[in-house]
Design a protein around this nucleic acid. Structure first.
Lengths: 281, 281
DNA sequence: GTAAGTTACGAGCGACGTAAAAATG
DNA sequence: CATTTTTACGTCGCTCGTAACTTAC
């Protein structure tokens, strides 16, 4: 069999026309190329060049051989790319969630359980997430309802409870709990990427206004500079406990819609990768 | 780049399941295969196997890589076959003719002008020959008429004249020449592969009978043992002059159909190969 | 004289085989 | 105990580079 390094040299000779030029671009000495061409000819059992004393030219057979050489090299390169891509897809996790809270818990945990993998996450609606799971855009979903499908594993993950985050001067600041209807009609500062929570607060407080902030830091800043209420959850309070949140207090919403249960859904073929996440809950 | 010898070993490992078996079929030592697999993995930058202490199995990435390996090896083999075939087609000539006479002149001449090539020849009808020239079944045709087509070179080659070969005891033995009609109604011994001549003698002597012999030696033998007439031409008389043909005489047919002019036709891309044949006429 | 190709010679990497060890059933 | 894989070590081959020669423009 003709080895790849020979085919590379043949393809270079075709591309650059002379042995010297080919050698220059291959960054090897010119006599190596000369010998390689002879080796290919003897390996194929056919003359590929017409040779004069100081000139060498591919003949028709040689051009055909060089074309095959290029084809084989292209296929090898495609192999390299494809294998690497496939391997990386095995060693990476793409997570889709209907809300940011569970991600705040899951992502740090993933970092230690599945080390050496790339983790990417996205917040979207349920429909996009489920189709994304089907076409391998996502490997792991966090939904607020279980999915009954024998192709997937579905396990209860964690629950999140919504709080109103209000200034000390807010009328409700002293209450132990509060209902959506009591807060309806007020102006809220809200992070824009809260997923499902947005539908809930908008439907439960139809007369409220929401000033959506794309930047999470803008939410913190605005809320500290104003007396406008905002939102938090048991999860965000835990994760961002270190941040000074003086002058404000968290009051749980009392409605049942303020509690959301999340589920993990993933392909059965990924069972080995993800089952340790469930067991760690 | 991953060298071919590595891909061969990978494909063998996939085919035979174990390193030992693969090594056995590759006729190399087993540790070589072990090292080769590690080399491929490091070359691709991906794990291809799940390894236990004395067991090694292709994982999904590995199966993909092995499939690519097989594809590349197949392409290389196709290259080898195709190149050899192409090279041989360059160094061989396939000749088609409507009559055997011109071949008797052309073939010995080709042997010296285009040495180192394989020459094959065939007698057939004009239609088959021309389609054969189009699809490269033939490189060189001998027809009894010129061909006007700018894709081809067409040159007048030589002419052949038909003779009646008769016993001394035959009534016509003393004549200088003879017409087809004078010979009509007689029984001829005839070589079966005379091409176009068969149509001519049958049409000009509709009442004659022809005893066709597949073997050219059978024609000679039968004609020497009987008084039945047979055929010859100026060309065959020249070529077979050495053979003792005592007791028989050649009489030229006087009709104009007894003279046939032949033309050489070949592809313009073969000009360099064949133009010396024409110039040697 | 410059540039191209071939030949000759020497060096170093690397592919292979042998031998030995560890693990599995 | 046989089979499989891995590791260690020595050897041989082969690819490469340098140098020198030939030829052509």
């Amino acid at each position: 069999m003709i080895e790849i390094y020979l085919l590379e040299q043949l393809a270079a000779v075709k591309e650059y026309g002379t042995l010297s030029d080919a050698a220059k671009h291959l960054r090897i000495a010119q006599p190596s190329v000369s010998r390689a061409m002879r080796k290919i000819e003897s390996g194929l059992g056919a003359e590929l060049f017409t040779r004069s004393k100081n000139k060498i030219t591919l003949n028709e057979t040689g051009k055909l051989a060089a074309q095959y050489a290029q084809d084989i090299l292209d296929l090898e390169e495609k192999m390299q790319r494809h294998i690497k891509e496939f391997d990386e897809s095995l060693n990476s996790v793409s997570i889709g969630s209907v809300a940011p809270g569970p991600l705040m818990v899951l992502l740090p945990r993933l970092a230690v359980t599945v080390a050496d993998t790339t983790v990417s996450s996205n917040i979207s609606d349920e429909n996009e997430l489920i189709t994304g799971l089907k076409n391998s855009k996502y490997n792991l979903l966090i939904l607020n309802r279980p999915v009954k499908d024998e192709k997937y594993v579905c396990a209860k993950y964690l629950s999140e409870h919504l709080f109103a985050n209000v200034s000390h001067f807010h009328p409700a600041a002293a209450q132990k709990k509060i209902s959506f209807s009591e807060m309806d009609g007020q102006n809220f500062i809200m992070y824009s990427r809260v997923g499902l929570w947005e539908e809930i607060v908008k439907s439960k407080m139809p007369d409220a206004k929401f000033f959506k902030q794309e930047n999470i830091d803008a939410v913190a800043e605005l809320s500290s500079l104003s007396d406008l209420p905002t939102f938090s959850t048991d999860i965000t309070q835990e994760v961002i406990s270190s941040r000074s949140n003086t002058g404000r207090v968290n009051i749980p919403f009392s409605d049942k819609e303020a509690e959301m249960q999340f589920y993990l859904i993933y392909n059965k073929s990924d069972k080995k990768r993800f089952e340790k996440i469930i067991s760690s809950v």
